[in-house]
């Protein structure tokens, strides 16, 4: 870094660069991703083993149940499972971000945090409402696809305000969401891939790139 300068062009470039970099949310920890991924895989396993009875209940647009069980029971358990996964993943994200910001001597709730959360929430809330609409019309087969798609869009939207990896995680989720929409039978598998494995992969990459040396 040069100490003195009389080049307005370079100065303005440096100002823009630092303003841009310093307004990113850097308290996001890769550990949040790894934790969320593990929780999601556990949630998917519970869904597969207990709620869908190891595949005896077909996860497609009709949620067919051969031989007993009630629709409403399955719906309730699926919703509870999903809410539990969401709640624990968000709690993990807050916990690990708090830890990282504390280490840096920064407050967690800053302008950058507000901006990140806002841009994340707009597509996410829209997606949540859309999924409730799908459920209302009994169109269960597209729920996994919609979750992946809207989550991916939310990440791409918020990716500008934090680490670059989030942008690519978002694109990956969108891709998986498209696949889940085409191959309805693989909805749960692709959901586990997107919310489970991809969180762990990207979380590990972020952890090794940005946090390991500190």
């Amino acid at each position: 870094m040069k100490n003195s300068s009389t080049h307005p062009n370079e100065d303005l470039q440096a100002i823009r660069d630092i303003m841009e970099r310093s307004s990113r949310f850097l308290s996001l920890s890769g550990l949040s991703g790894i934790f969320a991924g593990i929780i999601a895989l556990m949630g998917a396993a519970i869904t597969w083993l207990f709620i869908l009875d190891s595949g005896h209940v077909h996860y497609d647009e009709f949620l067919r149940i051969p031989g007993g069980g009630t629709f409403s029971g399955i719906r309730l358990y699926l919703a509870l499972d999903a809410l539990l996964v969401l709640g624990l993943a968000v709690a993990g994200a807050v916990f690990f971000s708090q830890r990282k910001s504390r280490k840096a001597g920064q407050r967690l709730w800053t302008n950058s945090t507000r901006r990140l959360v806002l841009h994340l929430m707009i597509p996410l809330v829209a997606g949540g409402i859309f999924i409730l609409i799908l459920v209302l019309h009994n169109n269960w087969g597209l729920v996994a696809s919609a979750m992946l798609m809207f989550y991916g869009l939310a990440l791409v939207n918020a990716g500008k305000f934090t680490f670059g990896e989030i942008h690519y995680l978002g694109l990956t989720e969108i891709g998986l969401g498209i696949l889940a929409g085409v191959f309805l039978d693989y909805g749960l598998l692709l959901w586990a891939l997107g919310f489970g494995l991809m969180h762990i992969v990207y979380g590990s990459v972020m952890y090794y790139r940005h946090e390991r040396k500190r």
Binding site: N3, S4, A14, M19, R21
Partner: peptide, 27 residues
């Protein structure tokens, strides 16, 4: 005119407040 002071100030223009550690890593 000093690039480092320019950098510190650029960061503080777009953030309410920044800690010593964050500034050190940023710059």
């Amino acid at each position: 005119e000093n690039r480092i002071r320019l950098g510190i100030m650029s960061a503080l223009m777009v953030n309410d407040s920044l800690s010593f550690n964050v500034l050190r890593e940023l710059l």
